[in-house]
């Protein structure tokens, strides 16, 4: 069984130079348990490696049920130089949420 990150968390992406940071916030405590346990830097790196990205650092804010991922080299050379159609990488939050994690349906949020 797997659970899609989209179903248990929301995300926002920001940029600084050639580094993207993407926060991932669980909708509830059960979802926080899942992302805290399963959404590792290795999984995130595997999902972003095709962009030439890495390394990845992870910061935890349990009181907000949030993780902050800092993903270096994810923005095609940086906002000001990138040839990408989305140089800020604002859309990368949605790429993050396509990650599948091991788990059952715990943490899924009712709309």
């Amino acid at each position: 069984m797997s659970i899609r990150l989209y179903d248990i968390a929301h995300a926002r992406a920001g940029d600084k130079g050639n580094t993207s940071n993407i926060s991932v916030t669980a909708y509830n405590d059960a979802g926080w348990q899942v992302i805290h346990r399963e959404l590792t830097t290795e999984r995130v790196l595997a999902h972003f490696r095709h962009l030439g990205a890495g390394p990845v650092r992870r910061y935890e804010l349990p009181q907000l049920r949030a993780l902050n991922f800092v993903i270096e080299n994810a923005l095609g050379g940086g906002v000001t130089r990138s040839l990408a159609i989305d140089p800020h990488g604002k859309s990368l939050s949605a790429l993050m949420l396509t990650i599948d994690l091991p788990g059952h349906n715990e943490g899924a949020a009712a709309p």
């Binding site: 929301h10 995300a11 926002r12 920001g14 940029d15 600084k16 580094t19 940071n21 926060s23 916030t25 650092r57 910061y59 804010l61 907000l64 949030a66 902050n68 800092v70």
Partner: peptide, 16 residues
């Protein structure tokens, strides 16, 4: 709380 949490971490690296 949800909108504030997203914006808190916007363009933030090490929160400490």
């Amino acid at each position: 709380v949800a909108t504030c949490t997203e914006q808190l971490l916007y363009e933030m690296h090490d929160p400490t």
